[in-house]
């Protein structure tokens, strides 16, 4: 039996991708880019689910990842619709200028 990479590497990759997603969320100004970073985070989590599913030799992880995908798709649809609305009202895609909910 040839050996492959240890499972931990997959998990670390998942963590790195997640961190990159968070970085994108924190440091970018355009709403669309922020949204895409969110998708990146979700994908990282999916990878983590699948890796654990391999470890435990069960299919439940795949199911979870599947549901995450479904929800992410629905969320993307609605989120983009909201972005469209915001753009129509504010004429800007800069997230810092959408701050009328301040104290």
């Amino acid at each position: 039996m040839t050996s492959g990479p240890p499972l931990a590497w997959y998990l670390i990759l998942s963590a790195v991708l997640f961190a990159l997603g968070v970085a994108g969320f924190l440091f970018r100004k355009s709403i669309i880019t922020i949204f895409m970073s969110i998708e990146l985070m979700l994908n990282a989590v999916n990878l983590s689910f699948v890796a654990f599913s391999y470890q435990l030799k069960q299919v439940n992880g795949h199911i979870f990842a599947f549901f995450v995908m479904v929800v992410a798709a629905a969320e993307a649809a609605v989120g983009l619709a909201i972005i469209l609305t915001v753009f129509k009202n504010r004429e800007t895609l800069n997230v810092d200028q959408v701050n009328s909910m301040k104290y």
Binding site: S3, A8, A51, Y54, V59, H62
Partner: peptide, 13 residues
């Protein structure tokens, strides 16, 4: 470490 990931080892997907 964890289990070594080998393509084809998990047939449950």
């Amino acid at each position: 470490g964890g289990a070594a990931v080998h393509f084809g080892a998990f047939k449950g997907g």
